[in-house]
Design a protein around this nucleic acid. Structure first.
Lengths: 224, 224, 224, 224
DNA sequence: CATGAATGAGCCTTCATTCAT
DNA sequence: GATGAATGAAGGCTCATTCAT
């Protein structure tokens, strides 16, 4: 069942001249992400990770003191853009005249944009698989990404309710409705998607999702 | 230093082993689920799994020929109730006079009920973490659980659209909006939930989720 | 490479009525010999040995206290007929008028007869493979079988030399010439023989061997 | 109680490891031969094999992918010199004026010379013990060593018969007479020989053996 | 800086042996 | 007596980590 590793063949004789040592740690993390996701943390082999970066086993230890440290760095790296995400969002939302609905739309679109990037979207999947082994990491991610996002969204939701733009609702639940579709797609892409099928368009998905979230799916019934 | 109290052994000299109960394989799988989820498949130790069932290492091999076989059995076991789920759903939905909205509501509630059970809800998380290592298992789960559920929901959606009960929409996307919130909660419970916080009520969450899915979150604006 | 064990199929549902409990240990040893020879002592599984006798694992421990004990019993059992062999030989050799050559011939024929029996001939092969692990056993076999036989043969050789029937020679070497062909055939049968080839006839082999041993292979040359 | 003398470690702080010499695989095989012969294949422990070469467990896996591979390599290694043996023989035998008897003598002497070398002579014993588990290995050895040798000898025998130098005989049997004594001695040395006794001289044994093989052991009787 | 040979802890799996039934 | 479920020691093999070169 175990699918065969032909990782040796993945990077056939990486050219020697392509060396940007400054980005070395990043290249290693790229390989680590691939291997962690495909074999799990415990199942990933340092040698395979190194090979993705065109390095040998020992060399990665010049940049990371242990396998666990690589995992931590990987998660940290993926969390950095999240604050950038919030900066982006804040930039688009400054305008106080904007409707809450538009603000929410933009937030979700920006988030979708971030998480459709493999290097960021794979991380929650990684954490889902390794949360038991690395609870601090899950907790870190929860706080830095999940809760921070939820809080931002809930703030807008409550603002919309206050303004009379949104119906009264429990933002704690509504945020799950709003974020769920995105999470689901991220998981689909990273877990169940097959090469032989048309990929789902994030743009269209989010469009449809926001539409339903805002307006619901029911048609107004004449006699009711 | 204190005289060793071996309180575990005090139980009137428990026999070195007891006889096979019929539920032995199930007890082992319960332990396997716990360990697979908390250490990952590769990181889980057979001895720890055995301990959950009060057995010794070697004994689990009387029931499962390998670690991998345990994983497969675990997934298979969790998939069985899904067909029961569909039977449940079909039973509640027979009535042709029912509104599509009510049918959808019941489907989601039944699904939420199933997946809030740890033994069923943990499996997708396990698969998310191990899909790279066991692609056939992911494919199996995709077909038996994810796609089967999606198909059922999309059928009702399209039926509702035909009837004029639902707005025109692409069911492929709408189903993701509908299922996303449930998946998100399953992941939350299995990955990020902390003991020190009030757990989210599935019932209330689903209530809120369905309400938004049906009616949207926007209030009708007088002048627009 | 390891050849597959389908030992379960070897004795399809041994009839329950065929029970001669007195010979139980012997039946077990028969199975042990087969398994020890085909997997080696360490590689043989008690359960497979038991199956040859139509018994279950635990039952063989009613007759033998350990695997090692079975090996010892097996060797002991094969050594018993050797004294019988010497009795046979003595019976045929009493006549003091017999030529030494005839005595030797008869001895070798009797020995060949014994060792062509699989239960006796397999034992030296077993010992060759396990001598390192069980030096006492090898020593026991050496004394009881090899040296006893050598001594008997050397006695006749020396007697023949004394009588002027045999040329002067070192019996220590001559006995190896005499026994070697038989040993070689025993090894061939137990190690290299294939089912798809005509088996070597012990009778003809010994006939030829004795002829050469007695008369040599050279034709008398006219001019020398 | 005495202050621990760790005399093994005193050697001026030996480095935890030294570099790969080119002969590493050979050294490992030497250790493997010792352990396989003394414990049997199944009973031999990789760690013990490694220790013979001054290595640790894991290191042998840098050179051999499995225990079984070591066994195969060991047999292969021992077979290589056999072709050299035939080259030797051919070189000594070119002269067509030579008597068949002399050719045979030389062949046996060369073979004895080869097989008295422990690394070559132990292999047939190993195979005798493991033929059941590794039938292809036995078959390989049969073809490359046993049958090749037999064929060479039988050719000379038939040549001698044709020339009128040897008596008519069945070479299939005669070759067993000729090879048997050598095989017996190889087995004796590897299985039954004790340290406390005078070892048998291969040279004298072969001398005596060839004499008997050629001339027989009987003295010509005046009146017969 | 880079390498990869060497190490040894660790785990899956097997199987001789025990013993409740 | 027989059975075979249960045990746990043992060993093959892997791989994170170290370090001489």
């Amino acid at each position: 069942m175990q699918n065969e590793t032909n990782s040796e063949e993945d990077h056939k004789s990486a050219p020697k001249w392509r060396r940007k040592p400054e980005s070395r740690p990043d290249e290693i993390l790229d390989g680590a992400l691939i291997e962690f996701r495909s074999r799990g943390f415990a199942g990933a082999r340092i040698e395979d990770i190194a090979k993705h970066a065109g390095l040998s086993k020992g060399t990665v230890y010049l940049y990371f003191s242990s396998k666990e440290e690589m995992l931590k760095a990987l998660v940290r790296r993926s969390v950095l853009p999240i604050s950038e995400m919030f900066t982006d969002i804040a930039g688009h939302v400054q305008d106080n005249n904007k409707k809450a609905a538009d603000v929410l739309s933009q937030m979700i679109q920006i988030a979708a944009n971030k998480f459709s990037n493999h290097e960021i979207g794979s991380i929650p999947l990684l954490i889902i698989g390794e949360a038991g082994n690395f609870p601090e990491l899950a907790e870190f991610y929860r706080q830095e990404v999940i809760e921070a996002s939820m809080k931002a969204i809930m703030t807008v939701l409550m603002f919309g309710i206050q303004k009379g733009e949104f119906r009264k609702c429990n933002p704690k639940y509504a945020v799950r409705t709003l974020m769920g579709a995105l999470l689901m797609q991220v998981i689909w892409d990273g877990t169940f998607a097959r090469d032989d099928e048309e990929p789902i368009s994030y743009e269209e998905l989010i469009q449809s999702h926001l539409d339903i979230f805002m307006n619901g799916i029911l048609l107004p019934q004449e006699n009711s």
